[in-house]
């Protein structure tokens, strides 16, 4: 063998994961880390210890040792999942094979219980393991922050008073507005309005069309109400209006105009959506607002009556008639 003992010592120091091969592909000496992973001083043919994955079809050790290559891929027979990289350097009477754990380094550290002493100081493997560990920690922190942001968002949404689609008040917003009106002394009208044929728009033209219709109706409602009127969408196609200081006559006229505006066809992506609106309403003084639940109940009956009389119309509730 042409590799001398001082050279072996040099290789041991600089490339602890190396093997010196003779012309037959037999191991004549090996670096300390290679010795550690094969579990004792390796002897015999290199291909008895490692499966050669690349280059393929190279099974003759005598040809192998004459092949100068940077692209060896090998797996230890005892750890077939590890993919080690190899560089083979032919020399007079044999070759030097230097190995690295490549991308299997984490698994290799696990499998062979490797320490910092198993890698030369110039090898970046230890730094890479440091990076992997630091990255995992940073990722954990980032995931934690994202989770907390998400739950904060959910809390904020559930505390919101606004309907996301239309920008009108939602049920919670309506409750707050009702509480404020209960405290006051002004008379007030309650209007419950449902869209007619909304379900068929949703069913035939899809939810995007349905959403477009709801946004359009919300805009009409804003146009046909005053600044201080309360306009809410309480789920689906149900709208609730609270209009302070309005006479039954004014309200009736205003609802006529609103219902007629809602009944005009709405265009959505070249298709016409035809809907209408039915409403029940009541005009009460501040004291009657206190029992809001009952007020809603009788106004809802008026809404039902409007639907029964052919839709696209509005009907006053019993309480409003006595005013």
């Amino acid at each position: 063998m042409t590799i001398s003992s001082p050279q072996t010592s040099l290789l041991d120091h600089l490339c602890p994961l190396h093997a010196v091969l003779d012309a037959e592909g037999q191991i004549t000496s090996s670096g300390p880390t290679l010795t550690k992973i094969v579990g004792g001083d390796p002897q015999g043919p290199i291909l008895d210890l490692f499966d050669l994955r690349r280059p393929t079809g190279l099974t003759d050790p005598q040809t192998l040792v004459k092949t100068r290559t940077d692209r060896l891929l090998l797996s230890p027979k005892t750890q077939p999942d590890l993919k080690m990289k190899g560089v083979l350097h032919p020399m007079q009477g044999g070759a030097v094979l230097n190995l690295s754990f490549g991308l299997s380094v984490r698994e290799a550290v696990q499998a062979y219980d490797l320490t910092q002493h198993d890698f030369p100081e110039t090898d970046l493997t230890v730094e890479m393991l440091y990076m992997i560990e630091a990255n995992t920690l940073a990722m954990t922190a980032a995931i934690d922050v994202t989770r907390r942001l998400q739950s904060a968002r959910q809390r904020a949404e559930s505390a919101s008073h606004t309907d996301q689609l239309t920008g009108l008040l939602n049920r919670r917003g309506l409750e707050v507005a009702v509480d404020a009106l209960k405290e006051g002394t002004v008379p007030c009208a309650l209007v419950l309005m449902d869209l007619d044929h909304f379900k068929s728009v949703n069913d035939t033209l899809g939810h995007a069309a349905g959403d477009r219709v709801l946004e359009h109706v919300a805009n009409l409602l804003r146009r046909y109400t005053r600044q201080n009127d309360v306009v809410a969408r309480c789920g689906g196609d149900e709208f609730t209006l609270l209009i302070p200081e309005i006479t039954a006559q004014d309200l009736s006229q205003r609802l006529d105009a609103l219902i007629s505006a809602v009944s005009a066809p709405i265009e959505f992506e070249g298709q016409m959506c035809r809907i209408g609106a039915s409403a029940g309403w009541s005009v009460v003084d501040a004291a009657e607002l206190k029992d809001f639940e009952n007020l809603v109940k009788i106004t809802d009956e008026a809404l039902y009556a409007a639907k029964q009389s052919g839709r696209s119309c509005h009907r006053p509730a019993q309480v409003a008639q006595k005013l």
Partner: peptide, 8 residues
């Protein structure tokens, strides 16, 4: 000292 392995 405390044992240290590269293994996470």
């Amino acid at each position: 000292g405390r044992a240290f392995t590269l293994r996470a």
